[in-house]
C-alpha cells in the first residue's frame, strides 16, 4: 500500500542508531520466547535467533526492542509529526557475503585535504546502547564474525584497530544474530567459537490456531480464511525435504491472505503467493496446487 504524503516532507530520514519503532509491532508469542529474551537482555547475554525464513525472527526482535524500550528509556522526543518515540533503538544489518569488518566498524573517507572517520553501524549501536541485529549472520565473511567476539563475552568492548580505540558498550547494547540452519551448506556454518557465545531461541512455524490468528491480524481477513491458510501452511510443510527445501513461511501465507483481502480468488492468490514463490519444479508446483484446490473452493 503506498501512502502518498500531502506535506512537503516526502520521507523521513533517521540516523541508523536513532531509529526506533513508534508503534507496537504485532507479535503473538508461541512459547516463552518473550520471557527468555527479557531475561537475556537483563543479563546481557547475546541472543541467537534460529529458524526458517518467515517464521517471525525479525518481527520478534522488533517487538522486543519496542517492549524493552518503553519502560526503560522514557525519551519524550517530540518530532515535527508529533509522534511519541518509544522503544529501544534497533540497528539491523543484513549480512551478505561481501560484508567486511570495515562495513560494520567504520572506515576512513576522503574529505577535502584530509580523511574523515565514520562509524559503522555496529560501532554506532555500541555507542548508543542499541540492540544490534545481524540478520543471516553466516552469510558474512569470517573476519566479521571474529570481530563481534569481544562484544559478546564479559568484556563487551569493540576494539577499533584503525583508530587505536576501544569502545565500551553502553548499558542497553545487545548483540542479536539470526541464522537459518535449513539451507546453509556445510561450508557456511557458524564457527563454534562464535556459536558458543550466544543463547539460542528456536523459531518454528506456529501451530495452526496461532498461525491462523497471526494471518487473520496481519492480512485483515476473516477467521475462516485465515484458518484455511494456516491449514494449507501445515500441509505444505509436510513436503519439506520431499521436493521443497523449505516449508512455506508465515509471511507467504500472510501475503496470500492480503491478496485474498483485496479480492483475488483464494486459489489464484495461493498460486502466486505460495506455489510459485516456493518452487520452480513443475511436479511439486502441481502437487501443492492440488492441495490448494482441495482446501479452497
Amino acid at each position: 500500500m503506498i501512502e502518498v504524503q500531502e506535506s512537503d516532507e516526502t520521507y523521513r530520514q533517521y540516523a541508523i542508531e536513532e531509529y526506533v519503532l513508534s508503534q507496537e509491532p504485532f507479535y503473538l508469542p508461541v512459547t516463552d520466547e518473550v520471557e527468555l529474551f527479557n531475561a537475556a537482555y537483563e543479563q546481557k547475554i547475546p541472543v541467537l535467533l534460529k529458524g526458517p525464513t518467515g517464521s517471525g525472527k525479525t518481527r520478534f526482535i522488533e517487538y522486543m526492542a519496542f517492549k524493552l524500550g518503553r519502560p526503560l528509556t522514557i525519551i519524550k522526543d517530540v518530532t515535527e509529526g508529533g509522534d511519541v518515540k518509544t522503544g529501544l533503538p534497533l540497528v539491523t544489518v543484513a549480512c551478505h557475503e561481501d560484508l567486511t569488518a570495515s562495513d560494520l566498524v567504520g572506515r576512513y573517507l576522503l574529505e577535502g585535504e584530509s580523511t574523515r572517520w565514520i562509524d559503522g553501524p555496529l560501532t554506532r549501536a555500541v555507542k548508543v546502547g542499541a540492540i544490534c541485529y545481524l540478520d543471516e549472520v553466516v552469510e558474512a565473511r569470517k573476519d566479521t564474525t571474529v570481530l563481534i567476539h569481544p562484544l559478546t563475552d564479559h568484556r563487551r568492548i569493540l576494539p577499533i584497530e584503525k583508530l587505536g580505540q576501544i569502545v565500551e558498550a553502553r548499558n542497553g547494547f545487545l548483540l542479536v544474530i539470526s541464522y537459518n540452519p535449513g539451507y546453509q551448506s556445510a561450508l557456511k556454518d557458524l564457527k563454534h567459537s562464535t556459536r558458543q557465545r550466544f543463547m539460542a531461541i528456536e523459531f518454528g512455524y506456529p501451530p495452526r490456531e496461532l498461525e491462523a490468528k497471526i494471518i487473520q491480524h496481519e492480512a485483515d481477513i476473516s477467521a475462516s480464511v485465515a484458518t484455511e491458510l494456516a491449514k494449507l501452511g501445515e500441509k505444505v510443510r509436510h513436503l519439506k525435504e520431499h521436493g521443497l527445501a523449505e516449508g512455506v513461511s508465515t509471511r507467504l501465507l500472510i501475503y496470500a491472505g492480503r491478496l485474498i483481502q483485496k479480492g483475488i480468488t483464494p486459489r489464484r492468490a495461493c498460486q502466486v503467493a505460495i506455489v510459485w514463490a516456493l518452487t520452480d519444479d513443475r511436479d511439486v508446483q502441481r502437487s501443492i496446487e492440488e492441495v490448494v484446490s482441495s482446501i479452497f473452493e
Binding site: 502441481r286 501443492i288 492441495v291
Partner: peptide, 15 residues
C-alpha cells in the same frame, strides 16, 4: 504418481 505422492504426503504428513 509423483504429484499424487506429494499430495498425499502433504495431506497426511507421512511418507
Amino acid at each position: 504418481g509423483e504429484i499424487l505422492r506429494m499430495y498425499c504426503k502433504a495431506l497426511t504428513g507421512d511418507d
